[in-house]
Design a protein around this nucleic acid. Structure first.
Lengths: 112, 112
DNA sequence: TCAACATATGATAATATATTCATATGAACG
DNA sequence: CGTTCATATGAATATATTATCATATGTTGA
């Protein structure tokens, strides 16, 4: 695979983005996969408005609590959202500005 | 679903990105889903270097032609790549700069 | 401590997705 | 026109993913 290298050595054949290894590409696909589900993207979008607890997210998306929790776990594991406990509730929020930017970027693409 | 509206009317409850409808979010997830497969992202990445025909892509990714063609069809349908025929070969290329930017954005997120 | 509430988790079933194999289409050229 | 090369496509299988149901964990306050 000429342009996808096993390590991060300088590539003799190409000069653009030869520093991307196969594993990095797999990670990248993994990241986009997280955004590629409508429930998860609705959750992320819901969190654009600030932090929310699980019950609020369930109400907003009109979905059952278990489904939401399962997806929140995936988002947490991928470090796309953060969580903090306050009493019985757990509040979720977007992890960083990248999340916002990636979504905005996709939005722009679609809106054309 | 307070923050996800069925139409694009002005929202009374929120002021940020209330112009996103549920269908737009589904489209957005659909777009990210395309990037969320390692074969497709390798193809897109391969095309960063300029247009290539199917055989070249197969060689670069070390994958069989049918698998590549199936994924190219998905990329074509989603308008992420363009295709032109030259004799017996069909040359594929990235459709626009957004594709490049979305990938770069994800790459940045990962590299942190 | 126990009941009530909020959230997480495991198992299951339904659905979606990717790859492979076999074959079809389509172009070039003798 | 028939063969060869390049690509596309359909069917089948294997695998991954999601939502649901039932239940577990953890927190609060009586």
């Amino acid at each position: 695979m000429p342009y996808i290298h096993d390590d991060t050595e300088e590539c003799k054949d190409c000069h653009m983005i030869a520093d991307v290894t196969e594993n990095e590409l797999i990670d990248l696909a993994e990241l986009f996969k997280i955004f590629g589900d409508s429930t998860r993207i609705k959750i992320l979008f819901d969190l654009f408005h600030g932090e929310k607890n699980v019950s609020q997210i369930c109400e907003d998306l009109e979905m059952n609590q278990s489904a939401i929790s399962h997806q929140l776990k995936i988002l947490r594991t991928s470090k796309l959202v953060g969580a903090r406990r306050d009493g019985k509730s757990i509040y979720y929020s977007l992890a960083d500005e990248h999340v916002r930017m990636i979504i905005e970027m996709g939005k722009e693409h679609i809106e054309e």
